[in-house]
């Protein structure tokens, strides 16, 4: 848009809100906490750039030597330490790059992580405001999941990093197993659409141990 003469008055600023206003619930050794301040950008290599993307990801997540050589359709990559940086598979040849929100525009921040030349070869879409993310962790978290998640979340079927889309209580959702917390307590992130965040929360806390 063409620039015009500066306006005389400053417009009001807008206050951001998270989908569930920073929800937290801890009961019976199991906790449910809304993850806020995480940016999320969908990244998909355009034609001919798959290899460059994989190489860049292997470098970013240091998986070249020991870990998986390239992103897999069922496993998230996780850069250890801070700030957080996670690459979750979201669809065929399509990923969610998640990282701590430091106030930078998410697309700009994602471009910085991918590098200038690769960024030009990627389809990138801001998804930071599209999802509610709830971290479910603790001893009984699998009991909760057994009531809403049709996917096998047992330790053997779902090693740390495993990521899957699923339908929970008629809502599209993503489940990803995060590194264990504290004394080997499993932790899962559950993602679902922002507009139905309240229904999603209702589904989770309608399950044990949040209710009997």
């Amino acid at each position: 848009m063409a620039k015009s003469a500066p306006m005389s008055k400053t417009p009001p600023s807008l206050t951001a809100q998270s989908p569930l206003g920073g929800y937290e619930m801890i009961t019976g050794g199991t906790s449910l906490i809304e993850i806020t301040s995480l940016s999320m950008v969908s990244v998909a290599p355009l034609a001919g750039s798959q290899t460059a993307f994989q190489t860049a990801m292997a470098k970013l997540f240091k998986t070249g030597k020991n870990g998986s050589p390239k992103p897999k359709a069922t496993m998230a990559l996780d850069r250890s330490g801070k700030p957080r940086c996670i690459l979750m598979p979201s669809a065929q040849n399509h990923w969610f790059l998640c990282f701590d929100d430091d106030g930078t525009n998410p697309i700009d921040a994602a471009k910085a992580l991918l590098g200038k030349s690769l960024s030009k070869q990627m389809a990138m879409t801001d998804q930071s405001d599209s999802w509610v993310i709830l971290a479910l962790s603790g001893f009984y978290s699998r009991q909760t999941l057994a009531r809403i998640c049709p996917i096998d979340c047992s330790a053997s079927a779902m090693p740390i990093g495993t990521t899957a889309r699923a339908s929970m209580e008629h809502l599209g959702a993503i489940i990803t197993r995060r590194p264990d917390e504290g004394d080997h307590q499993p932790c899962f992130w559950l993602l679902s659409a922002r507009s139905s965040a309240a229904s999603f929360l209702h589904a989770i806390i309608g399950s044990p141990p949040f209710r009997n």
């Binding site: 848009m1 620039k3 306006m7 417009p11 009001p12 600023s13 807008l14």
Partner: peptide, 27 residues
């Protein structure tokens, strides 16, 4: 016009019917 940041222009000439674009608002 009361909400867009200074420097943005949404007049009919600059932003006619069926125009679209990114715009900075509310600071």
């Amino acid at each position: 016009e009361k909400l867009i940041d200074s420097g943005e222009d949404i007049s009919n000439e600059a932003f006619p019917f069926m125009a679209c674009g990114e715009i900075s608002i509310c600071g």
